[in-house]
Design a protein around this nucleic acid. Structure first.
Length: 460
DNA sequence: AATTCATGCTGCC
DNA sequence: TGGCAGCCCTGAAT
């Protein structure tokens, strides 16, 4: 099982983990008026990333080049972005799944957006939609969207009703693969719809007993689909044999609702799940029936926090997750970004900077694995070590204010007039933050406890 | 310093 | 199975 390639990776992982101690807060940007829900790194450009929010705002940012920044304002309440992916055939575009029940292809270069799918009329206000991409080869891509409709009544609450839809995009030519898939799916999924540029199916059956929070294809075996749900389970499905809600391959029961289930990018044989309380689990394909690792990690659910999802490092067997301190689990914690070794389950490093003191719900390593992008409330953060980003390595934190600052003023006033939110205080605050960063920067390194329960740290 | 707002999950009827 | 009260208890603006 341990291939040469694996061994190599493991040898390199150790120096990488050591290098984490030189990581620190690089900068922040907060042009948003609602919490960040999604963060995606550009597939090839190492300093470009996109972030999306609960209000449908989208930001594409190249933090080394402030002029290369695009911001798009969403529709506000309800336009929550549940999933975002760069278009695999054109990196200047992203796919967006919105709580309004739409799937759109959005261009960052001024081209008009394409509406690919809209969930049917169902007397519900919101759809919490998430989606995942699947590559069918031959220029064919397929998306699976899942959503829970929220009934109208009062704004909060509501029973969740799951809908699912597969959208296959006809990118080019006459797609034999699409027809095959169509034949496969048509028989087992309820309503069939066909439109000009896509084909969609609505599942007639619920796949879970409650909201589906996350769905993901295995990058290697594209028929393998993982779904996570608030019904306390993760389910693995074979898309080729999807008949009804009982036709899952495996059901992975959890103690609490589950926020996410990610396959590991290095060999796609493991599944990383994050529940809504204190467990991060690692499952391995050799035995899906029980977790290989249960890591205790406080990240409980709270209504006004973006759900915390642990994610993989692109190369090494490492996991990143934001900590939401919980005295019932461990006292004296800071709101750190934690990095675990997925094989041993050990906490190998914690990132923390008092300048960015909130809970970092969303954390993702860049494709090269040398930068971490974080979503802390409405603020986008970056963590790295000096050398990787800026030639002089002198005052890297100055880079971010410029990069986001240029258009932020205009943008904010736009937002304010349209929605009357997000006052200028944010700007001042950010400036204050960044000013104070200069003093605190040296403290950063020592501010991170390297050992497990971080007991030594005083609370507040 | 105190208040308001945004709006998810669970258990019970 | 659907509706709703009660609870989880942050972060930013006012």
């Amino acid at each position: 099982m341990v291939t040469g390639e694996n061994r190599n990776r493991q040898c390199l992982q150790e120096p990488f983990v050591r290098s984490l101690s030189s990581y620190h807060f690089h900068g922040s940007s907060s042009p948003f008026d609602r919490r960040i829900t999604c963060l995606e790194w550009h597939p090839t450009h190492p300093t470009t990333l996109a972030a999306a929010t609960k209000g449908g705002d989208i930001l594409m940012l190249n933090y080394t080049n402030p002029t290369k920044e695009s911001f798009f304002q969403g529709n506000g309440a309800g336009d929550s972005i549940g999933g975002m992916k760069f278009c695999p055939t054109d990196f200047s575009k992203v796919y967006l799944a919105s709580g309004e029940g739409t799937l759109t292809l959005k261009s960052f270069e001024g081209h008009p957006s394409t509406l690919l799918s809209r969930t049917g009329d169902c007397d519900h206000d919101y759809h919490n939609v998430c989606f995942r991409f699947r590559d069918l080869g031959n220029h064919q891509v397929s998306w699976v969207l899942f959503g829970s409709c929220r009934s109208q009544q009062r704004v909060p609450a509501g029973q969740c009703q799951l809908t699912g839809q597969t959208v296959t995009e006809h990118l080019e030519g006459e797609p034999a693969a699409v027809r095959t898939l169509l034949r496969r799916l048509k028989g087992c999924l309820g309503v069939f719809q066909a439109e000009a540029h896509h084909t969609g199916w609505i599942f007639s059956d619920k796949l879970h007993r409650a909201k589906v929070t996350h769905a993901e294809f295995n990058p290697r075996y594209d028929w393998l689909l993982a779904t996570a749900s608030v019904d306390h389970t993760v389910k693995l499905w074979d898309l080729r044999n999807l008949k009804d809600k009982k036709s899952f391959l495996y059901e992975l029961p959890h103690e609490k609702a589950v926020n996410s289930a990610y396959f590991n990018p290095s060999d796609c044989s493991k599944l990383l799940t994050t529940d809504q309380n204190d467990q991060i689990r690692v499952y391995a394909s050799c035995d899906w029936t029980k977790p290989q690792q249960i890591i205790q990690h406080p990240h409980r659910q709270f209504q006004h926090l973006t759900p915390i999802k642990a994610t993989w490092h692109p190369i090494y067997d490492l996991i990143v997750a934001g900590r939401y301190p919980d005295d019932r689990i461990c006292t004296g914690d800071e709101k750190t970004i934690d990095i675990f070794d997925s094989n041993s389950g050990e906490l190998v490093f914690q990132l923390y900077d008092p300048v960015a003191s909130g809970i970092k719900s969303v954390n993702k390593f860049s494709p090269r694995g040398d930068v971490i992008g974080s979503g802390m409330g409405v603020t986008l953060l970056l963590w790295d070590h000096d050398e990787s980003l800026l030639g002089d390595g002198q005052k890297p934190q100055e880079e971010m204010p410029t990069s986001s600052g240029l258009s932020r003023g205009q943008r904010r006033s736009q937002q304010r007039s349209s929605r009357d939110r997000k006052g200028s205080a944010a700007d001042a605050k950010l400036k204050k933050k960044l000013a104070s960063l200069e003093e605190t920067e040296t403290k950063t390194k020592t501010g991170c406890t390297k050992q497990k329960p971080a007991q030594t740290k005083r609370k507040k």
